[in-house]
């Protein structure tokens, strides 16, 4: 095995896994937010991510550096999220569990197909023109990846501080705990929901913009990101930010390893395999709680 013969290779895989995992964690945090606060399971999560990526990439082709595309993607996606909330999510939020799931499933199809019509099915990367450094001899580290990792951290921190300190953040947390009580206390829950959903879209947009710089995007990659977000949130539970971060980074590393060991064509299967493992693990936990029968 190469990994045993050249241990330094592990460093490469580990680092790359952590870099990409940070963006997974970011998108998953957004999902945890809408899931926890609004009880909406957003199947279009990954498509929001890819959409953010395309915004950054397209701006790049227009001569705007993708790093500047990042804030633009955040703003555009925030507005887009608001629009989607007003047209679709608001109407399904009170309905049963599956309604939001199926509605966002339809939304996922629309976004993916529109991106395909506009930009074609090719795989794209936004060029950021940063240097690639060599460390420890053979390990290569692209500066953009490090930068993206740091930006992920900053963005996550910003969201956390926002949720803790700002008036809106407090309203969101109050609504998450008990929407009825929040409404009685004079919180405009509709606005809170709109804001939460838009915030999620913005977070996805940021994650996508970063992914477009450090990895590749394609119109139909959205579903993998949705599944990744579900894996992470299911494993970590919502409202557990450290858990989401650890699960996100862990997923990134595991995917990288399996991609290397088994071959790249198994990468998606790995994600799904992990999803099933996480779901089975949940089931075993529930069995302990006398929740499931066989």
């Amino acid at each position: 095995m190469v990994l045993v013969a050249a241990p330094v290779f592990n460093v490469q895989l580990l680092l790359d896994g952590l870099f990409i995992g940070a963006t997974f964690a970011l998108a998953a945090y957004g999902l945890a937010l809408v899931w926890g606060v609004m009880n909406v399971k957003n199947l279009a999560q990954g498509d929001f991510v890819i959409m953010g990526g395309y915004i950054a990439w397209w701006l790049g082709t227009q001569g705007i550096h993708p790093l500047w595309g990042l804030p633009i993607a955040i703003v555009v996606m925030f507005a887009f999220g608001w629009g989607i909330y007003v047209t679709i999510i608001r109407r399904v939020i009170d309905k049963d569990l599956f309604t939001s799931l199926l509605a966002t499933f339809g939304l996922a199809i629309v976004i993916a197909q529109l991106l395909n019509l506009m930009f074609g099915p090719e795989v794209q990367t936004a060029e950021s023109d940063f240097a690639i450094r060599q460390i420890l001899g053979v390990v290569t580290v692209a500066e953009i990846k490090v930068l993206a990792f740091v930006l992920c951290g900053i963005l996550a921190l910003a969201v956390v501080i926002f949720m803790k300190k700002s008036r809106m953040g407090q309203a969101i947390r109050a609504t998450a705990q008990d929407p009825r009580a929040a409404r009685v206390m004079g919180i405009d829950t509709d606005k809170v929901y709109a804001f939460t959903f838009s915030l999620n879209a913005a977070i996805c947009g940021a994650a996508g913009a970063l992914i477009s710089m450090i990895w590749v995007i394609q119109p139909f990659y959205g579903i993998s990101y949705s599944i990744r977000s579900f894996v992470i949130v299911t494993a970590a539970g919502f409202g557990n930010l450290p858990g989401v971060i650890m699960a996100g980074l862990g997923l990134g590393v595991m995917e990288n390893y399996s991609g290397f060991v088994l071959g790249a064509e198994f990468q998606q299967a790995t994600v799904v395999g992990l999803l099933l493992l996480v779901l089975i693990w949940r089931q075993v936990q529930q069995r302990k709680l006398r929740q499931v029968v066989s």
Binding site: K288, L289, R290, Q291, V292, V293
Partner: peptide, 25 residues
């Protein structure tokens, strides 16, 4: 009726210990 596990003690139904059983059982 078996909605959650108990921490300690015993529950018997007609002499049969049921504290480990699940709801439908």
């Amino acid at each position: 009726v078996g909605y959650h596990p108990i921490d300690e003690g015993s529950i018997k139904f007609k002499g049969e210990e049921i504290s480990k059983y699940r709801v439908p059982q």
